[in-house]
């Protein structure tokens, strides 16, 4: 009897699972990344070429249809693909009325005013797990990333670590500094590194500053994400001020491979791994 009940129950669950949407269109790259992290391949994504160039990992399947620009996903094309669910972020709320004519629209926000991005990414992973009836995978993913960060923290803790600036170059005179409410801040906090930039940041967790600001913390290490914009390397070599920055003079300068700075848990995990690789072996 109990065995029979078990069979019936699993049948019901199976049915329920079949009812979860599988044809999913995604307008935002952070949600695309999270979706792939839950083991679901999206039907269509906006700007697939941009995703492949800037986000890179996790890789997007070749079968995913390109919907065009993120601000204006192609409605005719999307309607013909007949998705069961469309995922957006509040940034694309303006398209909602149009998108709802095609399929139910769900808006999920990794970045918000109330919550740091890392917690936001966890929350969105759970919400997406519930929506797709993949709560198990969601919890596994969250636990895995937490675990990875913890692991990196213990490895970094074996030696004293200087505070770090996390930045991308805009040109030879300006950088984006990532701070409060960026996904990187969440990682730095959890692996035990201090962010050298404590100042104001925007909604997405960064601020644009001239490179002389980097002198404010002479002890800090400079972590910059590749790729550098064209011409910047040459101009930095010619920049007297850059050459005189304490971190540059003392060689506390660490390039990191590309990470998409506006994504979720997988970007956090990737960033933590890169920190481990590049700072784990550094002797101060």
């Amino acid at each position: 009897m109990r065995a029979l009940l078990g069979v019936i129950l699993s049948c019901c669950l199976g049915l329920a699972q079949a009812a979860a949407p599988t044809r999913i269109a995604v307008i935002d790259w952070g949600l695309t990344e999270t979706l792939l992290g839950l083991g679901v391949a999206p039907l269509a994504v906006a700007q697939t070429s941009g995703y492949r160039r800037w986000v890179v990992e996790p890789a997007l399947p070749d079968t995913t249809v390109d919907l065009g620009l993120r601000v204006e996903p192609n409605l005719e094309l999307l309607a013909r693909l007949k998705p069961e669910l469309i995922l957006i972020t509040p940034q694309f709320e303006a398209s909602r009325a149009q998108l709802e004519r095609i399929a139910p629209v769900k808006s999920l926000a990794i970045y918000s005013e109330e919550q740091e991005a890392y917690l936001g990414a966890q929350r969105v992973t759970r919400e997406l797990g519930q929506l797709l009836q993949r709560e198990g995978q969601a919890e596994t993913l969250i636990a895995r990333v937490d675990q990875a960060l913890l692991h990196v923290a213990t490895r970094l803790a074996t030696r004293p670590q200087a505070p770090v600036f996390v930045m991308t170059f805009l040109d030879a005179r300006h950088v984006r500094l990532f701070g409060r409410s960026s996904i990187y801040q969440g990682v730095l906090d959890r692996v035990g590194l201090r962010n050298a930039w404590q100042g104001h940041t925007n909604y997405w967790g960064f601020t644009q500053q001239g490179i002389d600001r980097l002198a404010a913390e002479p002890e800090a290490r400079l972590l910059y994400l590749e790729p550098l914009p064209p011409g910047v390397e040459r101009n930095l070599a010619a920049s007297a001020l850059w050459q005189q920055l304490p971190a540059v003079r003392d060689g506390r300068l660490t390039p990191l491979p590309p990470v998409w700075s506006f994504n979720g848990l997988l970007a956090a995990e990737r960033f933590a791994m890169l920190l481990d690789q590049h700072l784990g072996g550094v002797h101060e």
Partner: peptide
């Protein structure tokens, strides 16, 4: 980078 340049930034490093 072009946005910054396009908006006229006078900041100098040398």
């Amino acid at each position: 980078a072009v946005f910054i340049w396009g908006s006229g930034s006078l900041s100098q490093n040398s």
